[in-house]
Write a protein that binds this DNA or RNA. Structure first.
Lengths: 232, 232
DNA sequence: CGTGATCTTGAAAATTTTCAAATAGAGTGG
DNA sequence: CCACTCTATTTGAAAATTTTCAAGATCACG
């Protein structure tokens, strides 16, 4: 029987890829695989000693719920992403599967021990955390766009890039992992406004909808652009 | 002559506080102090091998400029905060002083070397990065509020907490480190809307303005709340 | 005590939200 | 496989909010 990680689809990209074969297997023995269906919770805000995990397949959302019960999506996690707070005494946010997802889950104590044992792992997580921070800031930049059309366009572009295998190139065609409500939630818009923005993008021949969730990018260059600016 | 760090105001909170006295001094010798005035640039997006630094005094903003020239504030850095990307080949964003600021600056190579030499430093930076990520997500949550009044209120609360010494307790009175334009920028609102929101908050006896920049919190509990929800 | 920049305020225009209803899709049980 | 049902999405029109444009007030500073 081969290594537990031998067939792992993210073995070359996840944080643990910096470990040697043996080190990785030993870490894998401390963890376990887990599958979540759409809407299932990995852990909830307030959980003590919440686990941490590498996402192997699927997609997750990180959300917070304010005092009035409104949910806010704070981040999306894609395969090879690491999820979990190693230092906070309890989880700050909920983490929920957007679709069927597979994770490699570790107890926080085990991950902390691994961090001590393998300095390279700490570096790898620091690097990943830096990337997460960058992604979070890009998300922040989305909200700066003045018009709903631009916000939705920028989000589509971000999702297309996340859906693509090759980094930095958006997938030409992909399925939205988010409902209209979830998209609106991320952009501070209502469901109806998101829907209207998509209609407008389609009328402008920037995208082509394929059913409710499928998106084809006809003119990716105009997605991130302002509504007006491209009249030239 | 004592240690270079002996009088450092953030010596107990910055990432380097996990080092021993000697380790810290040796790191300090690799770095240098630098003072920036309001509006001065620490480094710019695209800089190769941009330095990194711990903020000792003052405040910084991390900004990006989109293709149409609009600036977007992505993060605020407060004393003891660490700034700089250790892994990206070039800086993603501009970093600018909001007011007179003092920093402890390191060449990226030196910081990377220190990371290898002191695993505890990698952990400390990972922890700090996790906190930055959390703050960035909180900022993201600001934009979810539907009304301008709530957005501005939430931002004021965040700034009051940053201005306070005691964590988790907002300063009752403080000076805004940001112009109206910068606040609007962070919230996706115009200068005028921010100004009107402040006027409304003042009319509602939630805050009291002291000149253009001074803010006194009269009823902090109502700052983060929805406009309507608190009619009871 | 000017002077330029920042901030406030007003009114019209544009955009978004809200409320309401119709349509399309996905999943289920017959 | 199809009809049914529940949910998600789209669309419309009025109401509310925000932006834009314009002008006056205030502040900081030389």
């Amino acid at each position: 029987m081969g290594s537990a990680c031998a067939g792992c689809p993210v073995r070359d990209r996840a944080a643990c890829s910096v470990l040697s074969e043996e080190e990785r297997d030993s870490l894998a023995r401390a963890g376990r695989m887990r599958t979540l269906g759409r809407g299932e919770l990995l852990f909830a805000a307030g959980d003590e000693d919440a686990a941490c995990a590498t996402l192997v397949r699927g997609a997750l959302k990180v959300t917070s719920v304010d005092e009035e019960g409104r949910e806010r999506i704070l981040a999306l996690i894609h395969p090879a992403g690491f999820i979990g707070e190693l230092f906070a005494p309890f989880a700050h946010h909920d983490v929920v599967a957007l679709g069927e997802s597979e994770l490699c889950v570790f107890a926080r104590r085990d991950m902390n021990a691994a961090l001590d044992r393998h300095p390279a792992l700490a570096r790898a997580l620091l690097r990943r955390s830096e990337e997460d921070l960058h992604r979070s800031r890009q998300l922040l930049a989305l909200d700066a766009r003045p018009s709903a059309r631009d916000k939705v366009g920028s989000l589509l572009l971000a999702l297309a890039e996340a859906a693509s295998d090759s980094p930095c190139h958006p997938a030409r065609q992909f399925d939205l992992p988010l409902t209209r409500g979830e998209m609106g939630n991320m952009l501070g818009l209502t469901i109806e406004t998101v829907s209207r923005a998509l209609t407008k993008l389609e009328n402008d021949r920037v995208i082509q909808r394929k059913g409710a969730r499928g998106i084809e990018l006809l003119d990716p260059a105009r997605l991130g652009q302002s509504d007006e600016e491209r009249v030239v």
